[in-house]
Nucleic acid binder design. Structure first.
Lengths: 171, 171
DNA sequence: GAGCCGATCTTGCCATTGACAAGATAGCAC
DNA sequence: GTGCTATCTTGTCAATGGCAAGATCGGCTC
């Protein structure tokens, strides 16, 4: 660990996701991230440009992780919904920035590409567009409400399943 | 408009909601709000304490508005869902802060009371808890996704109705 | 109507932050 | 070894949030 950190970009996105999960996007400080990583206060700017750049990287990673989670869940709509909720709960820092345009560089190439992949994984789940939108809406809404504390319970999946099933009666 | 503004609190919450709608919660500046209202940079602190206090006031107003919109929609679940989505689209600044605990004073008395009222209006719509949660989740999820740009279309209500109907087949 | 008092607003200040510019260092190609 | 480029540092600036202390106003008491 000399003058060059070597893996700053990855280190910082991970630290940023953790910080966002704990204190929200507004509570993120580039200088604090730099301190945690043991680098100077201007090091982040080189890799990410600005604060939005850091969050854009986190969001991009989030969409990639989400796409992977959905793929792994397979074709079953209920399983995909559960995977969506579980992703949000397991990666609250990522989830908190992914859908907040005001925090991101909306025209970032990597971000758009990752969104496309995730979007594709979602669209493939239902035969019709409205069905896909409905499934996405329930899963997204439940995850958001759970993370905000509006819906509580001992176990996320146990609370999510009966809700998701309302939309997926066949599963 | 002498030394005392007279209606600073209302003026500032309104300006704050507009600013949040345009630039997100992170883009809100207390000093800018003060400049817009024509008062000194420390005036907001007296009424709201700190930045979170301003957003808490906005969120409180949001829950009150939401409860009113739901009440007006009546007992019909689909109508309530449409009202929920319409509220979010009509008051994006309020909606953006209402469910983000990291921005608010979570123990604020007025906030908790307004939440209770809105929560009551929601719970009364469905006979069982899971049904209410499911309706809330779809409406909330669709509204969030629409506001983030993830779901697009020429008209919100036209896009929302078929999605909401998946969960409310009887309407 | 004179005096007091609390609410409201102001000025002044400080530490922190995001962003930028210019320079130092290190690894790498040749 | 020499140059090149990515990486990181130091130095700086304006803006911000928050705090403290003081000024002004409106209303209430007597």
């Amino acid at each position: 660990m000399s003058y060059h950190h070597g893996d700053l970009r990855r280190t910082m996105t991970a630290a940023a996701a953790t910080a966002v999960a704990e204190r929200g996007p507004a509570g993120l400080s580039l200088r604090e991230l730099a301190r945690l990583a043991g680098v100077s206060h201007a090091a982040p700017a080189h890799h990410f440009g600005d604060k939005a750049g850091v969050l854009t990287a986190v969001a991009t990673e989030g969409f990639t992780l989400l796409a992977a989670a959905l793929d792994e869940a397979g074709d079953d709509l209920l399983a995909a919904g559960v995977a969506y909720v579980r992703f949000a709960v397991d990666h609250p820092g990522h989830f908190a920035v992914m859908f907040d345009r005001s925090l991101l560089h909306g025209d970032d190439t990597d971000l758009l590409a990752a969104e496309q992949v995730a979007s594709g994984a979602l669209a493939g789940l239902a035969p019709d567009a409205d069905g896909a939108r409905a499934a996405w809406s329930v899963a997204h809404g439940f995850a958001s409400l759970w993370l905000s504390g509006a819906i509580e319970g001992p176990d996320v999946v146990a609370a999510a399943e009966p809700v998701l099933r309302r939309l997926v009666p066949d599963a």
